[in-house]
């Protein structure tokens, strides 16, 4: 197989770019510990009423001063439908679904989770600015998909 000199340079450039690129992204991802939402907690979607924290959906203050919000999604709405959380505090959202896959995405933030029946998805977020935040379902869930929303009011302490 004959390779022209320019082709050799170009191939070398391509492979070098690939290796450098992979290492840079790899190092920045693993070394700096980027952590998108995660967790592998399982839950029985038929027994949410007796499974903490979903037996009492809503905002709970924990001992360390941070907050935990338990939310149950179901076609086509969330329980609770409205909550209040303080600004500047760590808020951990724990969400699960009763029926089909929904999503829990707080507009204008990086909180965007798929809400899967049988699994608990969680994400921690600090609201800096007080105000009202809309939460929408962006995982297609049926004919009422576009209605599905809830609201968070972030208040000054």
């Amino acid at each position: 197989m004959h390779l022209h000199k320019y082709e050799k340079i170009w191939l070398t450039f391509g492979f070098a770019a690939l290796i450098i690129f992979l290492s840079v992204v790899g190092v920045s991802a693993f070394h700096q510990g980027h952590t998108p939402a995660g967790g592998l907690q399982k839950v029985d979607p038929d027994n949410l009423e007796s499974t903490p924290p979903f037996d009492k959906p809503g905002v709970h203050e924990k001992e360390d001063g941070s907050y935990e919000v338990a939310v149950v999604a179901e076609a086509f709405g969330y329980t609770p439908g409205e909550i209040q959380v303080p600004a500047g505090e760590k808020v951990t959202f724990k969400v699960t679904s009763k029926d089909v896959t929904h999503s829990f995405s707080i507009v204008d933030t990086n909180v965007n989770m798929m809400v899967v029946p049988g699994q608990v998805n969680e994400k921690t977020h600090v609201f800096r600015d007080p105000g009202k935040y809309l939460i929408v379902c962006n995982e297609y869930c049926g004919s009422g998909h576009h209605f599905m929303s809830m609201e968070i009011e972030v208040v000054d302490q």
């Binding site: 170009w10 770019a17 690939l18 690129f21 991802a29 998108p36 995660g38 798929m114």
Partner: peptide, 28 residues
């Protein structure tokens, strides 16, 4: 396609890296 499912940071990072890597041969 499943970053928001909650696969965890390691899985998400690996798939993000490999996704971006495809841009290289495509750019070529």
């Amino acid at each position: 396609h499943m970053f928001t499912v909650g696969l965890g940071p390691i899985a998400n990072s690996i798939f993000a890296v490999s996704t971006m890597a495809i841009a290289v041969p495509t750019g070529i």
